[in-house]
């Protein structure tokens, strides 16, 4: 006899539960956590290096590096003298809550203020999987073109911050930053947008200031909860 069985279950619920576990751990440690996403080569690792240089005197930072293969990025970040752990997804196109959870043992969370997770280079899949982060930030480089918001809407919808990178290349590429901004804001009016160049350093001060504020807000929350 054929049975029809109603289920109505969220396919990603298992990941959501793990992400919530991670979120609780991060909150307890008073950490601010960002999930950094972009297509391959947009400048995630370069942005991390620049961010570490800008904030290392005042903020204790750690990095989780997600890549399909290799430990190249973790070695780059490790040279900066911050805590870093490399995650290899072994073919998977995104990080998920479980991978993050399994990497936390390798980090001394009590000695961190800011944890930055570099997701696998991919403009599609990472947007669908929460990791327990406070916010998602995405990088789009001008070399990728101003049409990307139209093609990868979910990532723009999910992100709190958009960093438009490689603005030093603007004279050489067909990219209308005004259009890029407009298209991104049509998808998500709350996006905070920074135009930067990780090569020249242009625009990175505003990004660092913004991030510094988020970290100090988190500390204030934690102190408020203690008193």
């Amino acid at each position: 006899m054929t049975l029809k069985i109603p289920v109505v279950r969220d396919i990603l619920a298992a990941n959501e539960r793990l992400a919530e576990d991670n979120r609780r751990i991060f909150r307890q440690a008073g950490l601010f956590v960002i999930n950094l996403m972009s297509g391959p080569g947009a400048g995630k690792t370069s942005l991390l290096e620049r961010t570490i240089d800008a904030l290392r005197q005042e903020i204790r930072m750690g990095v989780i590096e997600g890549d399909i293969q290799s430990s190249y990025d973790a070695e780059r970040i490790g040279q900066k003298g911050v805590q870093v752990v490399q995650l290899n997804t072994g073919g998977s196109c995104h990080l998920d809550g479980n991978m993050i959870k399994s990497s936390l043992d390798a980090l001394d969370l009590g000695n961190l203020d800011l944890l930055m997770v570099e997701n696998v280079g991919n403009l599609v899949c990472p947007a669908e999987f929460n990791l327990g982060e406070d916010m998602k930030a995405m990088i789009l480089s001008v070399a990728e073109g101003d049409d990307k918001p139209l093609k990868y809407p979910l990532m723009f919808q999910e992100s709190r911050v958009l960093l438009i990178n490689k603005i030093d290349l603007l004279p050489y590429v067909e990219c209308d930053v005004g259009k890029m901004r407009e298209r991104a804001l049509q998808l998500n009016a709350d996006l905070e947008i920074f135009e930067v160049s990780c090569r020249t350093g242009e625009g990175l001060d505003s990004w660092a200031d913004w991030l510094r504020q988020r970290v100090s807000d988190r500390k204030a929350e934690l102190d408020g909860a203690k008193t």
């Binding site: 054929t2 289920v7 109505v8 279950r9 969220d10 396919i11 990603l12």
Partner: peptide, 10 residues
């Protein structure tokens, strides 16, 4: 949405 609504089996 990303959900399993129902399934049929025997």
């Amino acid at each position: 949405e990303l959900s399993v609504e129902s399934f049929e089996g025997e």
